[in-house]
Write a protein that binds this DNA or RNA. Structure first.
Length: 152
DNA sequence: GCCAACGTTGGC
DNA sequence: GCCAACGTTGGC
């Protein structure tokens, strides 16, 4: 089993939104980055756990945990000409973008902030705190996962 | 709102 | 295949 971190802007889709969805489950659509795409398409498996990270907000940080409940499949929003995620260059016979379904597991007892994570020498090498990192989906090493949870 | 960092696009 | 221009991300 693998561990992940997935970013979302709480103004667009936050942990509250996930918790309130039917079955507390949501397709993680709209990712348009090849590295993130590859991880969702090729590496994420049902049962994997992921941190829910709030980005682009007052206090960026990890707010909860979700589970991957459906492995990679084509992101339907790429074929919707009316939608903001439409990609006219994507061929339905060879879709360009993939997603996974995620299900709410639990909220953390507090937000573990980005500022705090950056201060921790134990998290050396964690992609989230590498300078200039912009990946919206990234792997989390088990030791980093456990350490972050120990801060809760 | 600013802007650094980075990815993508497209001309050549 | 290079690289300048442009767009996006996301912290601050």
């Amino acid at each position: 089993m693998n561990y992940w971190l997935m970013k979302s802007e709480p103004d667009v889709f936050g942990i509250d939104d996930l918790e309130q969805r039917p079955n507390q489950t949501e397709p993680w659509d709209g990712v348009r980055n090849y590295q993130a795409r590859n991880m969702m398409r090729d590496e994420m498996q049902v049962g994997d756990l992921a941190f829910f990270y709030h980005s682009n907000c007052t206090v960026p940080g990890i707010v909860g945990i979700m589970e991957i409940t459906k492995a990679g499949y084509p992101d339907p929003t790429q074929f919707d000409p009316e939608g903001k995620y439409f990609d006219p260059k994507s061929d339905p016979d060879n879709p360009r973008w993939y997603l996974v379904d995620v299900t709410f597991k639990r909220r953390l007892s507090r937000t573990i902030t980005l500022a705090e994570l950056k201060e921790r020498p134990e998290l050396e090498g964690f992609p989230l705190i590498r300078r200039g990192n912009r990946l919206s989906v990234m792997p989390v090493a088990k030791e980093h996962w456990d350490f972050i949870l120990s801060l809760e």
